[in-house]
């Protein structure tokens, strides 16, 4: 056979081989997972209002103490499901980390009416037009962010956080200083 077709077939074979390898390596990965580029980066600044008292909360005043941000909405069923776990943890670990809830894509009225019971150890913040949520790279609700005492975002949990043990593990990790060179 002349050289042309042989070269062409060879190229096709090589390309298909690479393709099959790429496909095979795709198994086991979740295609719906969204990259989390803020991991290890400093948490963006924010100024939000508390739902219960109306006072302002800023990032600056939270420095020096690890905290947990939980994004939720009144129209989100799984958010209601995870609330008991978070509320319990907020009480139990209140000396290790402060817990805040941030309302996503919702109005103040609905957040108040449909919201979880007002809990001083777990204040809810209202985020107008969800600007802060987008700043933090939120992809939906519920999501829970873990931020250490230096104000660096360590980790986030996507989906309802129902397992108390899972939460405890992540809180413990929050107390450790971040590994050197972790925040690229």
């Amino acid at each position: 056979m002349t050289r042309g077709p042989v070269v062409a077939l060879g190229c096709v074979a090589a390309a298909v081989g690479a393709l099959l390898f790429a496909f095979a390596s795709g198994f086991g990965r979740d295609p719906h997972e969204v990259p989390f580029a803020l991991k290890g980066k400093p948490a963006p600044d924010f100024t939000l209002t508390r739902l219960d008292t109306g006072e302002k909360v800023t990032l600056a005043e939270l420095r020096g103490h690890p905290f947990v941000l939980n994004f939720w909405a009144s129209w989100c069923g799984p958010c209601q499901l995870e609330h008991p776990t978070l509320a319990r943890a907020a009480q139990r670990y209140q000396h290790d980390a402060r817990f805040f809830g941030v309302v996503f894509e919702d109005t103040t009225e609905d957040a108040r009416v449909f919201a979880r019971p007002m809990d001083p150890s777990f204040p809810q913040l209202i985020d107008p037009q969800s600007r802060m949520a987008v700043d933090y790279g939120v992809t939906g609700v519920p999501e829970t962010y873990f931020i250490d005492a230096q104000g660096v975002i360590r980790d986030k949990y996507v989906g309802p956080l129902l397992d108390g043990q899972e939460l405890a593990t992540r809180l413990a990790a929050l107390q450790q200083p971040s590994a050197p060179g972790a925040s690229r």
Partner: peptide, 18 residues
């Protein structure tokens, strides 16, 4: 059917993919 693509039609991953 493999579940490795992010698509409206996606099925969950199963043995059928490999």
């Amino acid at each position: 059917r493999s579940g490795i693509f992010n698509s409206v039609h996606s099925f969950t991953q199963s043995d059928i993919g490999p």
